[in-house]
Nucleic acid binder design. Structure first.
Length: 846
RNA sequence: GCCCGGGUGGCGGAAUGGUUUACGCAGAGGACUUAAAAUCCUUGACCCGAAAGGGUUUGUGGGUUCGACUCCCACCCCGGGCACCA
């Protein structure tokens, strides 16, 4: 008798079997149809895997499983992004050494990742904190250095005064530390940077050719922030000085009624020959101190002060005052702007507050000679007025002419800044650089601009992270490694003099900027990557992950790929291709009962319990059934039951189907043919449904719409179970062997364990269902013989009639007009129009 | 403020110009059972009506169309991201 499916018995068993049989290990060296199914690897920074991780991995895995069955060699690796501040903070929180915690987390995470039933290629797993991995992360740093893409510079960084540590930009939320809520201050520190700005243009341009979630592309475009404009020089009266400003609106130059310089630039002046008035000096110093916090305060009023200096507007030779204000950024453009209050909201606000003149030069109601000043800045199109010889021109068209007129230089600015790569923390790959005082004094070194600096020779890599007791952040702006003499004392690789090793570690995002390359050959002891395999497997077929990485990981990883490509270190399969991921899809966010899951709310779902109670198959399907994958979903306990029932029904159906079939064969082996033939002739609705489902599921999985794919499988199951077949020996409709197998294969990516149990133990196949070819539908089976003709009167449905699929237009209209129900709405009037939509409806307009 | 999503039954959602609410959950009624669970069957937007039937309905208001959840315009609300980038 058909007993219930017991997931506890089967899931572990098949997971083990898949490992033994290497079901999900493709031939990395000679794949026939390589398909790299990559998903963002997790960072183990909590008690265990979050159900949100499982959501992401399951969706990607279902897609990968279909691709595998469609004949691709699918490579679906997994690993741990275990280095870095997330994991270190977790270790600090629970009071364990990060290196010890890593071992615990590794075991725990891998067990959990095993239990969700993904088709991971376990042989290729990697951990970023493994010296065999970070040896090559350091090697990449050295390559960046050698190619002039890594440099060192003094710059202000985010500093949390409570946690006594540097924070990365992404750890600053609304000007506050994401962990303790303390206001972040700025601190000047010497830092390592990667020249991502060199690639700004390419990173932007390449986006057009990428098949990525549109919101991610938009986020990257905004982050790169390309602006085309001009640099225009303003002379300063009575002094030899001049001020250069960057503007995207040279057409409004005649409306520039004052200049504003940033406090940073003002300070530079003060260090030079400028005698700042005491008031200004005070303002500059104060704003330099609290700038970052103030800027983020909502509804903050603009502040500023007059410098006492006047400049000359090069367009009309008018004298205009120079102000210093903190709404102008020192790090963007030239650090100075021309203020055109009539046509810029920020300048308008500033002019209003300090009663500075506002002059309209772009007029929306041309041909008025002058234009009244509006109560907000006018940023729209219009014609120029009050602009000398340019009067009457369309503002947009005059843009470059005016710039040229005053000798301005065309310039492109990017909002993107160089990537700050160094961290004053412990748990990361030490930056493989050595500084020699002796060489510095002699002004020699590997890079002219940075005397005394040498990369650690490649043969000496990795620079191992020592196991030290005092791994806590020091608060003094240096890494805890700076207290370890045995670590930092080295000899200069050039002159042999005593030198000092860099004690900062690199950003976690560098670890994750190349992991996908290492996956292809994680054991490689000779080089960072296996060029042949890289060329075969990349660009990846699909990359999936969270949208929160839109402008961090996803930008860094592209940058590194471009840089490696230019260094000649990687070549992808298509000639000239330099992007690693042609297709990227962001999964949605999983929430709980309408609210975000968070530890403070206590509503974080632990997948373990659900796997234990319902099984991985049920949880996988439930997560995918919630909503479209790219939209996210709302996790509610009650919904799990629906999937549990569905899988139970599948199990019972198959068991009964098998028992029934065996009984037929037992009586007389030849009966199977007769039996099958009978089925073939009796039931066409189910056959139609099967082929329709194959089409639907295939298309939906391809589009990552797993929710509707599951719904289609349910509809088919309901159909299979309805109306006892003519034979009367089995409840529900009877399928032929190939038909039942088609259904099972469609279900296999969603419920890999149960379908495998059925495939091999119930149906007796020798090899895995997950290596079976994906079912194809027969288009001729999809043709319906009849359809429901909808009859409308004035667009409202009044009747429906089942008609032959081949019905002619004339006949359909005739049927519609003959309908009794329709007649009562026509009231004997003559229809003005009768519209026929083939296979759909007739609309009678009266 | 700007950018991106989204607003459809009691709930998650389906439908991208053609029967609104597929599929699932919860609910109601019934069968089986000593009983419960499980399972199965029926029902299932709202209003009027005993019923037949009719009317209304996809955030709001307008428009295009024979026909609009779907396209266009304006507005409101929710979620997410960016935030003085000149």
């Amino acid at each position: 008798m058909a007993s219930n499916y017991d997931h506890k018995k089967f899931e572990k068993k098949w997971q083990k079997k898949w490992l033994e049989e290497k079901t999900y290990e493709p031939d990395l060296d000679s794949p026939k149809k390589p398909f790299y199914n990559l998903m963002m690897f997790p960072y183990p920074s909590a008690e265990g895997l979050h159900v949100g991780n499982m959501y992401a991995f399951t969706g990607a895995d279902i897609y990968g499983r279909m691709k595998r069955m469609q004949g691709n060699d699918v490579f679906e690796p997994i690993g741990l992004d275990g280095f870095g501040i997330h994991s270190e903070n977790y270790a600090l929180k629970i009071g364990v050494h990060p290196a010890d915690q890593a071992k615990v987390s590794e075991k725990r995470f891998y067990e959990q990742l095993q239990s969700i039933g993904n088709g991971f290629a376990w042989n290729e797993r990697l951990e970023t904190y493994d010296p065999e991995y970070y040896r090559w992360t350091q090697w990449l740093f050295v390559q960046m250095w050698k190619h002039g893409l890594a440099y060192r510079k003094k710059q202000s960084v985010n500093w949390c005064p409570k946690d006594l540590t540097v924070l990365s930009d992404e750890q600053v939320e609304g000007g506050k530390c994401e962990r303790c809520g303390t206001e972040v201050v700025k601190k000047e520190l010497e830092q390592w940077f990667f020249k991502i700005t060199d690639y700004a243009d390419r990173l932007l341009k390449n986006l057009d050719g990428l098949d990525w979630s549109e919101k991610v592309k938009i986020a990257q475009r905004n982050w790169i922030g390309k602006s085309e404009g001009a640099e225009i020089e303003f002379g300063i009266k009575k002094q030899e000085l001049s001020i250069k400003v960057f503007t995207t609106r040279p057409d409004t130059l005649f409306g520039a009624t004052f200049l504003v310089i940033s406090p940073e630039l003002a300070q530079k002046w003060m260090n030079g020959e400028w005698e700042a008035p005491a008031e200004a000096r005070k303002y500059i110093q104060e704003s330099l101190k609290r700038k970052e916090i103030d800027r983020l305060e909502e509804g903050k009023e603009k502040t500023g002060i007059f410098t006492g200096v006047y400049a000359v507007n090069p367009a009309n030779k008018e004298e205009i005052p120079v102000w210093v204000a903190d709404y102008v950024l020192g790090s963007y453009g030239t650090g100075a702007i021309m203020a055109v209050p009539a046509h810029d909201e920020r300048d308008f606000e500033f002019a209003k507050k300090f009663k500075l003149p506002i002059k309209m030069v772009v007029c929306p109601h041309y041909p008025a000679k002058t234009c009244p000043v509006l109560d907000t800045a006018y940023i729209g199109e219009g014609h120029l007025v009050d602009s000398g010889k340019f009067n009457g021109m369309e503002a947009r068209k005059a843009k470059w002419e005016i710039a040229k007129f005053v000798g301005g230089e065309r310039k492109t600015q990017f909002r993107l800044r160089d990537w700050l790569i160094s961290r004053q923390r412990y748990w990361g790959p030490p930056i493989p650089m050595i500084h020699c005082e002796a060489c510095a004094a002699k002004n020699v070194g590997e890079q002219k601009a940075m005397p005394g600096w040498y990369a650690v020779p490649e043969k000496d890599l990795p620079v191992e992270l020592p196991y030290i007791k005092n791994f806590r952040p020091t608060g003094s702006g240096v890494s805890p490694l700076a207290a370890e003499k045995s670590f930092y004392e080295v000899k200069c690789p050039k002159c042999g003099a005593p030198a000092r090793r860099e004690t900062d570690v690199s950003d976690t995002f560098l670890d994750s900027a190349w992991y996908y390359l290492r996956y292809l050959d994680p054991e490689n002891k000779k080089s960072a990557l296996n060029e042949k395999r890289v060329q075969k497997w990349l660009p990846a077929g699909l990359y999936t992950g969270g949208a929160e990485h839109s402008v961090l990981h996803l930008l860094y990883v592209r940058f590194m790929a471009l840089a490696l490509h230019d260094m000649g270190l990687v070549k992808f399969s298509a000639p000239g291709e330099d992007e690693p991921f042609k297709k990227f899809r962001a999964h949605g966010l999983l929430i709980k009962d309408g609210a975000k899951m968070s530890k403070s709310k206590g509503n974080v779902i632990n997948p373990d319990e659900y796997i234990k109670n319902f099984g991985a198959d049920t949880l996988r399907m439930y997560l995918m059934f919630l909503a479209p994958f790219e939209q996210g979903g709302d996790f509610r306990d009650s919904g799990v039951l629906g999937i549990e029932r569905f899988l139970k029904k599948v199990w019972i159906y198959v068991i009964e189907w098998k028992e029934n079939r065996d009984r037929v064969i037992q009586v007389e082996p030849r009966n199977l043919e007769v039996y099958t033939e009978n089925i073939r002739n009796t039931d066409t609705t189910t056959k139609f449904q099967i082929h329709k489902t194959v089409k639907k599921v295939t298309e939906d999985v391809e589009a990552l719409k797993f929710n509707t794919a599951i719904s289609a499988l349910m509809i088919l199951m309901n159909e299979m179970r309805s109306d006892p077949a003519d034979s009367g020996v089995i409840s529900g409709k009877t399928l032929t062997d190939p038909e039942l197998e088609m259904f099972l294969k469609l279900l296999a990516p969603f419920a890999p364990h149960m379908t495998e149990e059925i495939w091999r133990k119930v149906l007796g196949h020798k090899t895995s269902i997950h290596r079976e070819p994906w079912p194809e539908y027969d288009p001729s089976m999809l043709r319906e013989k009849k359809f429901i003709l909808v009859i409308q009167v004035n667009g409202k449905v009044r009747d429906t009639v089942e008609v032959d699929a081949e019905v002619t237009e004339a006949r359909a209209k005739e049927i519609a007009l003959a309908s009794e129900k329709v007649k009562t709405f026509i009231h004997g009037k003559k229809p003005q129009k009768v519209i026929y939509v083939p296979k759909k409806l007739v609309n009678i307009v009266i």
